[in-house]
């Protein structure tokens, strides 16, 4: 899987599908009892290549925050509740930036101004801010060093819908303006639909489909994606939505062959024996399914059936 410069790559998957372990590998935050069994993660930061699975502690420290940063799910657990926001900024960004006190402070104020956050948040404690405000501060924290690569782990899951849209749009604008890459992890397909340039769908620890957002939503080529997309209800459309039976397999004991076959309506004998490879099925569009060409969208988009629905 490749993430280009200046794009948002969405990773979608259900709980315990392995997405959390995956981003830990990306972030070089693997600790026992987790172990990387094989493969490598290569970064290309400002001309120098780094493999985060093999890099030493010191090398990782050198790139962390300056080139690679994260936006985490629970803003309350990132922001130390007994330290003012100002201090937290200092803790995270002071040493990577290598600025003296005054210059650092100016840099932060300028940055917050950019994110349309009032200066007063610097003097505040995390609990004095609303959930959306806190999440904006964490975005500020992650972007203050202008990193080239960011990992966002469910950054808006805990937020209300109105605030969620606001925070997403902020993230999108910051990313566009800095030209950074973001790996955006969430299980919420409607968030992906609006923020990601490309999406990778993970099922039971494997990437099953990857492609440009629009293509995935209109012409999915993996039955699992087709179901995910079709199961999203839309206001103004009351046609029955299909649901997927069965349960995601346990990663400790995955089924033979294609891991989706026990729940797949298109499963054939071959799926039970052989693991389908990730093959190109369209422009920048890859799918791991033996019958990729036969997958049809389960519910046609509203536009094509206007008048017939509702």
């Amino acid at each position: 899987m490749q993430v280009e410069r200046d794009e948002i790559y969405g990773i979608a998957g259900e709980s315990s599908s392995g997405k959390t372990s995956f981003i830990k590998v990306l972030a070089a935050a693997i600790r026992p009892p987790l172990r990387v069994v094989g493969g490598s993660v290569e970064y290309n930061f400002a001309g120098q290549r780094i493999d985060s699975t093999k890099a030493s502690e010191a090398e990782i420290k050198a790139i962390r925050w300056r080139h690679l940063s994260y936006i985490m799910q629970g803003s309350m657990s990132v922001l130390n509740p007994v330290r003012r926001i100002e201090k937290t900024f200092g803790d995270f960004a002071r040493s990577p930036l290598g600025l003296d006190c005054r210059a650092f402070r100016e840099r932060i104020e300028e940055h917050l101004d950019h994110l349309k956050l009032p200066k007063s948040v610097l003097r505040a404690y995390p609990h004095e801010l609303s959930g959306g405000m806190r999440q904006r501060v964490t975005i500020g924290l992650a972007t203050v060093c202008r990193p080239e690569f960011m990992i966002a782990d469910e950054p808006t899951t805990a937020l209300d819908v109105v605030v969620q849209k606001d925070v997403l749009s902020l993230l999108r604008n910051v990313q566009k303006e800095m030209g950074a890459s973001i790996v955006f992890v969430t299980h919420d397909m409607s968030v992906h639909a609006n923020i990601a340039d490309r999406i990778g769908i993970i099922y039971a620890g494997r990437l099953v489909e990857e492609g440009p957002t629009r293509t995935l939503f209109t012409e999915p080529k993996h039955p699992y994606t087709a179901h995910l997309v079709a199961s999203l209800p839309v206001i103004g459309d009351t046609r029955p939505r299909p649901s997927l039976e069965g349960r995601p397999p346990s990663l400790a004991d995955p089924p033979q062959g294609c891991r989706f076959h026990p729940r797949c309506p298109l499963a054939i004998d071959r799926c039970k024996r052989e693991v389908p490879p990730l093959e190109t099925v369209g422009t920048r569009h890859r799918s791991a399914c033996w019958r990729a060409q036969e997958v049809e969208p389960l519910v046609r988009p509203e536009a094509t059936v206007a008048g017939a629905g509702a």
Partner: peptide, 12 residues
């Protein structure tokens, strides 16, 4: 509400 009908257009 994040719309899925205009997916990929970044309407935020």
């Amino acid at each position: 509400v994040l719309s899925v009908t205009d997916a990929g257009q970044g309407n935020l």
